[in-house]
Computed example of a mutant assay.
Amino acid sequence: MDSQISHSRKIVKFLDGSLQETHDVIVSEHPLTIHLNGEEFATMVCSPANIKELTIGFLASEGFIRKIDEVKNIQIDESKGFAYVDLHTKTATASHEFHSKRFIGSCCGKSRQFYFHNDARTAKTSTSKITLTHKQCISFMKQLQDCSLTFQETGGVHNAALFSADEFIVSRTDIGRHNALDKIFGYCLENRIPVRDKVIAFSGRISSEVLLKAAKIGVGIILSKSAPTNLAIKLADDLNITAVGFIRGNSFNIYSHPERIVSEQQA
């Protein structure tokens, strides 16, 4: 697997009524196949960076691991795009088909509705007590955008960053919005970082998939410069997650659990 996340390519550009040759920076896209306990488990396309974190985070979000200690061995073959993972517990990967089956129903007596069985099993109701001020919401989004260098060059990736109430911790980039969040999840597991008191800032739309990823990671607040979907807001209500969207300039919208966003005076 090529380790470069972007490449320069000669293109023809139409500008001011004429065609001209120039160069553009193009984001890289590569397949990654995960083998779990000796069996082929899943194939995805991703940006070729932080592959180990992506693999760990993906397995955790799918419910196959809960902590890094459950991983016996992991080997990444970047040149061919393979990840080989052995767990201490032999898990039947054939059950992955069950994990991807459609499922609609209530959970724990509440109104939440999930599309897939593994979402109902692995999404956590947040118990986070963290609060952010108005200025922090705006500042965290600005920090995410400032560190998103690949997006600034290519416009072709999603970015996610993890914050505590006091500081920036890490950011990750990928062509897939879910991959960027899985890389954050994998980083937290690998480095044993507690997530309940953390915040995720995200570059794209807060879809139900993105909201569920945040719930699986375990954070209490997700920030975005874009909009949420209706289903994402319903899930955020039920999973006790504060969803903040349209963080642009000095304004934003709070769509669920606004009690975590406080004024400077309250803080």
Score class of each variant (00 low, 15 high):
Ile5Pro: 02
His7Pro: 06
Ile11Thr: 10
Phe14Gln: 06
Ser18Gln: 11
Ser18Phe: 13
Leu19Lys: 11
Gln20Val: 09
Thr22Gln: 07
Ile26Met: 08
Pro31Phe: 01
Leu36Glu: 10
Leu36Gly: 01
Asn37Thr: 07
Glu39Cys: 11
Ala42Trp: 09
Val45Phe: 13
Val45Leu: 13
Cys46Ala: 08
Ser47Ile: 00
Ser47Pro: 00
Lys52Ile: 06
Leu54Ile: 03
Phe58Gly: 09
Glu62Gln: 14
Phe64Thr: 07
Ile68Val: 15
Ile68Gly: 03
Ile74Ser: 03
Glu78Ser: 13
Glu78Arg: 07
Lys80Pro: 02
Thr93Val: 15
Lys101Glu: 13
Gly109Glu: 06
Ser111Gln: 12
Ser111Ile: 11
Phe114Gln: 04
His117Pro: 00
Asn118Ser: 12
Ala120Leu: 15
Lys124Thr: 07
Thr127Asn: 13
Thr127Leu: 10
Leu132Ala: 05
Thr133Pro: 04
Lys135Ser: 15
Lys135Ala: 15
Cys137Val: 15
Ile138Glu: 05
Phe140Ala: 09
Phe140Lys: 05
Lys142Asp: 14
Lys142Thr: 13
Leu144Pro: 07
Ser148Arg: 06
Gly156Gln: 15
Val157Met: 04
His158Phe: 15
Ala160Pro: 00
Ala160Met: 05
Ala160Thr: 05
Ser164Ala: 04
Asp166Val: 05
Glu167Pro: 04
Ile169Gly: 02
Ile169Leu: 14
Gly176Asn: 06
Gly176Pro: 02
Arg177Met: 12
Ile184Phe: 05
Ile184Ser: 01
Ile184Met: 02
Gly186Val: 01
Cys188Glu: 03
Cys188Arg: 00
Leu189Arg: 01
Asn191Ala: 04
Arg192Asn: 15
Ile193His: 06
Pro194Cys: 05
Ser203Trp: 03
Ser203Glu: 07
Arg205Ser: 09
Ser207His: 07
Ser208Asp: 09
Ser208Phe: 03
Glu209Ala: 10
Val210Cys: 06
Lys216Cys: 06
Lys216Arg: 11
Ile221Cys: 02
Ile221Met: 01
Ile222Cys: 01
Ala227Pro: 09
Thr229Asp: 10
Leu231Phe: 13
Ile233Met: 12
Lys234Asn: 10
Asp237Met: 12
Asp238Arg: 01
Asn240Cys: 04
Gly245Tyr: 02
Arg248Cys: 09
Arg248Ala: 12
Ser251Thr: 15
Asn253His: 11
Asn253Thr: 13
Ile254Arg: 00
Pro258Asn: 07
Glu264Lys: 11
Glu264Asn: 07
Gln265Asp: 15
Gln266His: 12
Ala267Met: 09
